[in-house]
Amino acid sequence: MATTSITVRETPLVCYLLRRADDALILGHRLSQWCGHAPTMEEEMALANMGLDLLGQARSLYTYAAEVEGQGRTEDDFAYLRGERSYGNLLLVEQPNGDFAQTMARQLFYSAFIDPYWRALMASPDATLSAIAAKAEKESAYHVRHCAEWLIRLGDGTAESHARAQAAVDGLWAFTGELFEVDEGEEGLIADGMVPDPGSLRAVWTATVTGVLAQATLIVPQNGWMQKGGREGRHSEHLGPLLTELQYLQRTFPGASW
């Protein structure tokens, strides 16, 4: 009988790759849930396109993780055969789509971070990491622009859209601190010059986000308390149901393939 669950042989690099891949997969899946529900045809295509970019980034990272782990696994094993506690994605990306403002605020908080992050990662001496980053950064640049334009339109729109946009920003704010968190394993990779320190991008992120919020006539939340746990597999109640949907086929028919 085919397996329904794997135990990853974790090294700092494998762990690092899986966390970044999980971010992209989960956020990409969230965006795919908009299919058929977007407010306009153009937006339908934009959300699907962004989701596809993220899925592609996840695939490259999972594939590389499989290579580094050296256990003969594939990208699919990591996506389908790990439970909630093994997923190391940010709490931010698993938050529900909510209304359109919530989806766009979530996208802005993530993209404003990952865009400069990919650019910094392009300098990695690891050729595969650098190549994945070089491709992803052009995609994330489009994402930043797109969600920023929307958030400005919503914030500086009607009283209703303004209130919803502010509520979205306020509601998601506590999940943004985790973007800059690193554990001991990642600290080692940073010290070796393999990957950039997310903390060094805080000023760039803050400048992008506060710039967009100001244009959107939205208030930057002053609440400094931040929720974390996603990187260690302690998730909000929203990840389980998402994985149930994402992994349904492999859980029902283990080992099924096309």
Partner: peptide, 8 residues
């Protein structure tokens, strides 16, 4: 080589 990360 792929054009975009997610090129299907």
């Amino acid at each position: 080589t792929p054009t975009y990360s997610g090129c299907p």
